[in-house]
Simulated scan of single mutants.
Amino acid sequence: MLNADTTHPLAPKVVEALVDAATQLGHQSTYTGYGELEGNVKLREAICKNYYKPRGIDLQPEEIFVSDGAHSATFDIQALFGLDNIIALQDPIYPPYLEANLLAGRSDIIYLECNEQNNFVPEIPKSKVDVIYLCFPNNPTGAVATKEQLKAFVDYAINYDSIIIFDAVYSAFITDPKIPKSIYEIEGATECAIEIGSFSKMAGFTGLRLGWSVVPAALTLESTVAGELTQLCRISQSIRFWGASSLVQQGGIAALSCQQECQEIVNYYLENARILKEGLSALGLTCFGGTNNPYIWVKGPEGMNSWEVFNQLLCKADIVGIPGSLFGSNGEGFLRLSTLCRQEDIKKAMNLSD
């Protein structure tokens, strides 16, 4: 339960596609080398048609940039922006957002408070910022944002010529129809938001590495025109990245064609979350998340710091998590647990083994 790695096998149709793609590479007549740097056009078309279109979102393949996972995309996307930009990050935060900007040389960073009082969804910045990182469903807190809350950020970004970088990696875990799975479900978001998606959690591709970024043609930043950032991203990707594995991209196409089978894997992890959250709550612990999200954000007893919560659960239940203080100052006193694991291990920890 320590990290965000997955444990459930891939959907059979995905495995079949991977095997077929590997077989084709072994024959002269079907061998292929480098592909399109933006990603296999059939995969980009499938992302538009099978992932976004059912949500009422119209995107073009030219606006999709395939990556070898959301982690890489997070580091690469910041290269589009100047080093003097003011960056707004949630606290607690997924650490690579901060690390990517610090490594790039940025120092003007503000933090948006996420706590129990605001259900771990921050308020919009109180002053002008250039780039806002938002992650919903959230890692590490398990929080989700409503349409109204996301609309406030979109309105802010449009008003201040800011850019939202929206991490939607855990969108497949959303079961509440009232909760947006994409920032583009919010009116105006294509004018101000970049979205990062991934096959890692929605299809179990943590060992395969495949994701994407959406940079809409309508997106503008201060002193830019529509389409300029999309073209800049295309140039950046051609310089920094030689494309995701052609074999893995075939697996991604298959995953988008069998979303129900992939969703069954997600549902397995959601059941894990239900079991663990109910078990920990029965022990008297306050738990957040675990609904519409594979993470449970455990609050320790009053006066106990994150490492003490870590030690208590490790010693009493053999449960290993990540101390909340490692995600930022507002994570102190909490522990993040992942339910992307085997169900029998969770039942054993909760003394529910058959």
Rank of each mutant, 00 (worst) to 15 (best):
S353I: 10
V14E: 05
K13G: 07
L340G: 03
R274E: 13
D167S: 08
Q78M: 13
T291E: 14
G197W: 05
C135I: 13
E148A: 06
Q117E: 14
Y269F: 09
E116C: 06
S213M: 15
Q90N: 08
P137W: 00
Q90M: 12
C287F: 05
E344S: 14
A4D: 09
G328C: 06
R106T: 06
A273D: 02
L326S: 10
S245R: 04
V14T: 10
I158R: 09
I186S: 00
L98C: 07
S236A: 15
L10V: 03
N101T: 11
E344Q: 15
D91I: 03
I164L: 11
A152D: 08
V298H: 06
A70C: 13
K347R: 14
A193R: 05
F199A: 02
N85H: 12
L10H: 02
E116Y: 08
I165D: 01
P12M: 07
P54R: 10
G251Y: 03
I163M: 02
W297C: 02
A254S: 10
Y295H: 14
Q237K: 12
D176Q: 08
G56A: 08
A70N: 09
K42T: 11
K128W: 07
E261S: 12
N139C: 07
P177G: 04
A143D: 01
Q237C: 09
A317F: 14
G142Q: 07
L335P: 01
L83I: 14
G211P: 02
C233I: 09
I183F: 00
G26N: 12
Q312Y: 14
S127L: 12
N351L: 12
L59H: 03
E308T: 08
L98Q: 11
F241W: 11
N292Q: 01
I86R: 14
L112R: 00
N119W: 04
C135Q: 13
I183C: 00
A152W: 01
Q249W: 02
L25S: 11
V215H: 06
S245M: 03
N267A: 09
R234W: 09
L276A: 05
L337G: 02
L89S: 05
F205C: 07
A46Q: 07
F173I: 04
V14K: 08
K53T: 10
T220E: 12
N330T: 12
M202R: 11
S213K: 13
P9K: 06
V14F: 04
I235C: 09
F241V: 04
R209E: 12
S257L: 12
Y97H: 13
A4F: 10
Q28P: 06
T230F: 05
I296E: 04
E222H: 14
N292G: 04
L352C: 07
L37K: 15
T141S: 12
K42P: 02
F136G: 00
S257K: 15
E264N: 13
E45R: 11
W242T: 13
T190L: 11
S325D: 14
F81M: 08
G321V: 01
N292W: 00
A46I: 11
I86T: 15
F205M: 05
T339F: 05
G105H: 05
N40H: 14
G227A: 08
A88L: 03
I164Q: 00
A226R: 15
N311K: 14
G300N: 09
N40G: 05
G290K: 11
P294M: 02
L37S: 10
P9E: 07
I174E: 00
P294D: 00
V19T: 13
K147I: 01
I164Y: 00
